[in-house]
Nucleic acid binder design. Structure first.
Length: 245
DNA sequence: CGTCCTGTTTGAGT
DNA sequence: AACTCAAACAGGAC
């Protein structure tokens, strides 16, 4: 569930809770004092990449789904929710296996909205500047860097590098500017495709690289290798994805 | 400061 | 049906 587009879907689905007053709340770890939420009204939901933000007048609850996080709206699973919210109109919102954090500062102070790939204020020039500030940065690490491409995860990374024909181990500083712009444009474009395909339940049907056995362009077997700082798996074609170095 | 390791513990795919 | 793998990140050891 956790890449950026999935968080946008969550934001869409929770619109019904905007303006709703919480009558009952529980948190099954000590991250947040649930009593703080009782009687409070949700004024808005925001997101920054993979962060889902529940906004109250005086503070924000940040939810990060990590790898395994999940949620239920007006229903529950057999497991106790990490965060349970019951509203005055008897609707409920439950989050499981997620990380919770209370934010007391204004969000504009801690989030660079221009770094969120699915934000309408996304700023490509700023992303290029951030990338070029790191001379040794690899393409696979650049896309996974949440301060540069907030919301990109391993699926989007692999699909973007394949679609823009860039080898994951390419040095960003060696990629021609036009090509780098192409990579960024593809990151935005594919993220919106991901959003639609996830809603349609057809996401994995459209994967061209992620978890694929061979290159759909030339049928050469894909290389599957742990790459970059975080050793996340890359799927790539050595023939059609150019190595810039 | 960088790198490696661990904990998290769902849901899709085989 | 049972099993394996992975959508991510923080924090601690060294």
């Amino acid at each position: 569930m956790p890449e950026g587009p999935s968080i946008l879907i969550l934001k869409e689905k929770t619109q019904q809770f905007k303006g709703q007053k919480i009558t009952e709340a529980s948190c099954n770890n000590n991250a947040i004092d649930a009593d703080l939420l009782i009687g409070k009204t949700i004024i808005n939901f925001k997101s920054w990449g993979k962060h889902f933000l529940i906004c109250f007048p005086e503070f924000t609850v940040r939810i990060h789904m990590m790898m395994f996080g999940t949620y239920r709206i007006n229903e529950h699973t057999t497991k106790p929710p990490r965060l349970h919210l019951l509203f005055s109109n008897d609707t409920e919102l439950n989050f499981y296996a997620c990380q919770l954090q209370l934010i007391e500062q204004p969000l504009d102070e801690i989030y660079d909205w221009e770094a969120d790939i699915m934000s309408d204020v996304w700023n490509s020039k700023k992303a290029i500047k951030k990338m070029l500030d790191e001379p040794e940065l690899l393409a696979c690490d650049a896309l996974m860097d949440q301060q540069i491409f907030s919301g990109v995860g391993n699926i989007i990374k692999n699909e973007v590098l394949f679609r823009s024909r860039i080898h994951p181990l390419s040095l960003v500083s060696a990629i021609p500017n036009k090509k780098l712009k192409e990579m960024i444009d593809e990151a935005i474009k594919y993220s919106y495709e991901f959003f639609e395909q996830r809603k349609q339940g057809t996401l994995s049907k459209h994967w061209q690289a992620y978890h694929q056995k061979e290159c759909p362009r030339n049928h050469v077997p894909f290389i599957r290798k742990d790459t970059g700082r975080s050793h996340r798996t890359s799927f790539y074609c050595e023939k059609c994805q150019k190595m810039y170095k």
